[in-house]
């Protein structure tokens, strides 16, 4: 599946394993929340490679609390593009929990949602094959300006209210 990360198309080194698939020991893997919470959950962290979890849109980020510091990736599922719950999940992961790993959008994600996703903290996008990859790169243009004070895509969007005050966040004291 094509993966867009930080504006570039890259080779995806991660692989998702459904609950009925056996897990190999040495490669970055994404598992379900159920598997993480199961009897072998703790064991998954001890095989010396990166671990990620896939959260369905109805599953709550609070469930991940015990493992957040040890997870490198959280994949948030959009079963349909109109199901916007993952936007809140991403915003909470970056905001409340300060999660620094990769937050990946998977499922039915539309190119027109890209600016919104970037701004709540998604940094990787699994795009269904056949979708025009060019238009995904162009979608970056749509970010432009943001009125929201809690925007997390500082590098790409101009936070209007801060700009009006002439304050650059990291340099406010100078």
């Amino acid at each position: 599946m094509p993966l867009l990360k930080n504006g570039e198309w890259i080779l995806d080194t991660w692989r998702f394993y459904a609950d009925d698939q056996p897990i190999p020991s040495a490669r970055p893997k994404i598992v379900t929340l159920a598997r993480l919470q199961g009897d072998d959950g703790e064991f998954l962290f001890h095989c010396g490679c990166n671990l990620g979890v896939r959260l369905e849109s109805h599953e709550k980020v609070e469930e991940l609390e015990p493992w957040l510091e040890r997870l490198q990736l959280i994949a948030l599922v959009f079963p349909k593009f109109v199901d916007g719950r993952a936007f809140s999940s991403a915003a909470m992961l970056r905001g409340h929990y300060g999660f620094k790993g990769e937050i990946r959008a998977v499922g039915n994600v539309l190119v027109d949602q890209y600016p919104f996703m970037r701004r709540v903290g998604f940094d990787a996008f699994e795009v269904e094959p056949g979708r025009a990859q060019d238009s995904w790169k162009k979608a970056r243009i749509g970010i432009g300006l943001a009125y929201q004070y809690d925007d997390t895509s500082e590098a790409e969007a101009t936070a209007v209210w801060r700009a009006r005050r002439g304050v650059r966040p990291a340099l406010a004291a100078e």
Binding site: F81, V82, D83, G84, F87, S88, A91, Q113, P115, F116, M117, R118, R119, V120, A146, Y147, Q148, Y149, D151, V160, W161
Partner: peptide, 13 residues
């Protein structure tokens, strides 16, 4: 009005 304009988290309620 400004805050809710293209709010990234709340545009697919």
């Amino acid at each position: 009005r400004q805050w809710s304009s293209l709010h990234p988290e709340f545009s697919f309620l």
